[in-house]
């Protein structure tokens, strides 16, 4: 027992200071892509390099668009572009409450709208999340899981994961929704009491990601459920997920 208490003292304070301060991320971290239509010459190389058809740039420079919902942040487009029209920034704040908000291009505003007042009064300081892994590779689950550890300590915001969907307020979906998981996902949704939310985390859950178009998958959660929040990434950094949740709950400073 004393050992445990000693260890507790030595391990020290480790909770990420977010959202009060921005976290320190790896210098090689690939965050929000920056598009520079001015530099684009519509050569289409980026489109050819993209494994998920997230980017389209073959018509005109001004039509350079990147769908964050499909992007797996592999950086192939950045390498393919000789003009430097695409670069990955260090911005981890990514996510939108509208699917269209994820298509970066002209005049797009990627925005996480807070919940309406009534929902906010309920969920603002108390929200239970039921996570359903619907056919992905397990990486998003791992990064969702990590939020509950003391490194991020989700519960200080009154957010937690629920064992039973009956106790849950939000359904967090990861994975492209495999055909085999579709029914289970629906059943989980039906098992939750109203009012309730759906959060799609990761490229797979938003659009099918790398698996998009494969016959065994359903290309994302909105094929099955009404999604309230999209958090892009493959997998999204835990901080991006936390940012999305807090944005939705209007808890960001």
């Amino acid at each position: 027992m004393m050992r445990a208490l000693n260890a507790r003292l030595r391990q020290g304070y480790r909770t990420n200071p977010f959202p009060a301060e921005d976290p320190v991320l790896s210098p090689r971290y690939a965050g929000l892509p920056q598009l520079d239509p001015g530099a684009c010459n519509a050569c289409g190389e980026c489109e050819k390099a993209c494994p998920t058809q997230a980017i389209s740039a073959h018509t005109a420079p001004s039509e350079l668009k990147l769908d964050l919902g499909r992007c797996i942040f592999c950086g192939e487009c950045e390498k393919a572009c000789d003009q430097g029209a695409i670069s990955f920034s260090k911005t981890f704040r990514m996510g939108a409450t509208e699917r269209e908000g994820l298509v970066l291009g002209k005049n797009t505003e990627m925005r996480i709208k807070r919940l309406n007042d009534e929902m906010l009064r309920c969920f603002g300081h108390a929200m239970k999340i039921r996570v359903v892994s619907a056919g992905g590779c397990g990486a998003c689950e791992a990064d969702v899981n990590v939020l509950e550890t003391i490194g991020f300590d989700l519960s200080r915001f009154g957010i937690g994961y629920a064992a039973s969907p009956r106790h849950a307020d939000a359904l967090l979906v990861t994975g492209p929704v495999s055909g085999n998981m579709e029914l289970a996902l629906k059943k989980t949704w039906e098992a939750m009491p109203d009012p309730k939310l759906v959060i799609a985390v990761g490229a797979c859950a938003i659009s099918g990601g790398i698996y998009r178009g494969m016959p065994e998958v359903r290309d994302g959660a909105d094929s099955t459920l009404p999604v309230n929040l999209y958090i892009p990434g493959c997998p999204p950094h835990p901080i991006s997920i936390l940012n999305g949740l807090l944005g939705l709950l209007n808890r960001l400073p």
């Binding site: 050819k48 390099a49 993209c50 494994p51 998920t52 797996i72 592999c74 192939e76 892994s133 056919g135 992905g136 590779c137 397990g138 990486a139 998003c140 689950e141 791992a142 994975g175 492209p176 495999s178 055909g179 085999n180 998981m181 289970a184 790398i210 698996y211 494969m214 016959p215 065994e216 998958v217 997998p235």
Partner: peptide
């Protein structure tokens, strides 16, 4: 439940997706 058909998708490769499919065969 997690069946996505990766082995089938590999057939005809390698292509630009192949290495990503392998990276996500098991995410961890």
């Amino acid at each position: 439940y997690q069946h996505r058909g990766i082995e089938n998708a590999m057939v005809g490769g390698p292509d630009k997706r192949t290495v990503h499919l392998m990276e996500t065969a098991a995410g961890d």
